[in-house]
């Protein structure tokens, strides 16, 4: 084994073209899946045939909200829930840009839910990556709109009493042109999904189911990140084209993944011109 000191300075990660390596190590906990979503996204950026100078990435607030700070693009870390609205302004003002919104479930679906619906309805040409870890992690494990029924969180100590939202169904019914869901374990399929969605004209949504070892797993006694990854291995099923109505996720229930929607609709900027 080489010693740390001799090896350290020489190591150059191949993704340094699309990552701000001077910002890494990042803030996420050991076993957290957000890093995996970023890895897949970085790999997709390298593989997709797009001009990286023309891509902007916008994040909101939360653990996933920090993603924009680690990706070497024109990147914006904005107010809680307003990432899609901010990105809409960018895309409408300069339709030549490709805009990516990378944020969490609480940011995009709870406080930013209205912006999500209306950007999908307008079919603003952007890729929305929603990292779903079933909980508000940065604030310490509060119940999120995606927390499965009966799962514990610090603000529902007797189990969540609110039925969770089905993100692909919401995106589908609001008019998104591309909807897919993968877990962080299915990293290559996730990468391919990102590449496809980056190519797609219109409002594309990729939901990434991600482990939160520090809060969701700890409060619900589900083990660490690796245990969650093993759970994803055993309890997921790929069903491409599945009706988005059937994609609810119960507590430790089966997770159906795949590409559910891939259709064509004229985007906002196309219609505006």
């Amino acid at each position: 084994m080489e010693t740390l000191k001799t090896k350290k300075m020489k190591e150059v990660h191949p993704m340094e073209d699309v990552l701000r390596m001077n910002r890494i190590p990042h803030i996420w906990c050991p076993g957290c899946g957000i890093g995996l979503a970023v890895t897949a996204f970085a790999a997709a950026l390298e593989k997709a045939k797009i001009d990286l100078n023309k891509v902007a990435i916008v994040s909101g607030i939360g653990c996933t909200g920090r993603v924009a700070g680690y990706i070497k693009l024109d990147s914006f870390h904005t107010t809680h829930g307003r990432a899609i609205a901010f990105a809409t302004g960018i895309k409408v003002a300069n339709p030549d840009l490709k805009v990516v919104v990378f944020s969490g479930d609480g940011d995009l679906i709870s406080i930013g839910g209205n912006h999500f619906i209306h950007a999908a309805r307008r079919n603003i040409d952007m890729l929305v990556v929603c990292v779903n870890n079933f909980i508000y992690a940065m604030t310490g494990g509060q119940v999120a709109p995606t927390t499965p029924l009966a799962a514990y969180a610090t603000t529902c100590p007797f189990g969540s009493v609110e039925p969770p939202i089905n993100i692909p169904y919401l995106a589908d019914s609001s008019g998104a042109v591309y909807v897919a869901r993968w877990t962080t374990l299915h990293i290559r399929r996730l990468t391919n999904s990102f590449i496809e969605a980056l190519d797609k004209k219109g409002f594309s949504v990729v939901e990434v189911i991600s482990p939160c070892p520090q809060y969701y797993s700890r409060i619900n006694r589900l083990g660490d990140g690796l245990d969650m990854m093993k759970f994803y291995h055993d309890n997921t099923e790929i069903r491409h084209g599945e009706d988005t109505k059937n994609l609810d996720i119960g507590f430790q229930g089966k997770i159906i993944m795949g590409k559910f929607i891939d259709r064509e609709r004229p985007s906002y900027t196309e219609r505006f011109d």
Binding site: F76, R82, A85, T88, G89, V92, N94, H115, Y268
Partner: peptide
């Protein structure tokens, strides 16, 4: 663009301003 509320309105303005 007519946005869905005033929150997003100003957010969009800020985004647009950064495009020049």
């Amino acid at each position: 663009i007519q946005m869905e509320d005033e929150i997003s309105t100003l957010a969009a303005v800020l985004g647009a301003s950064w495009t020049g």
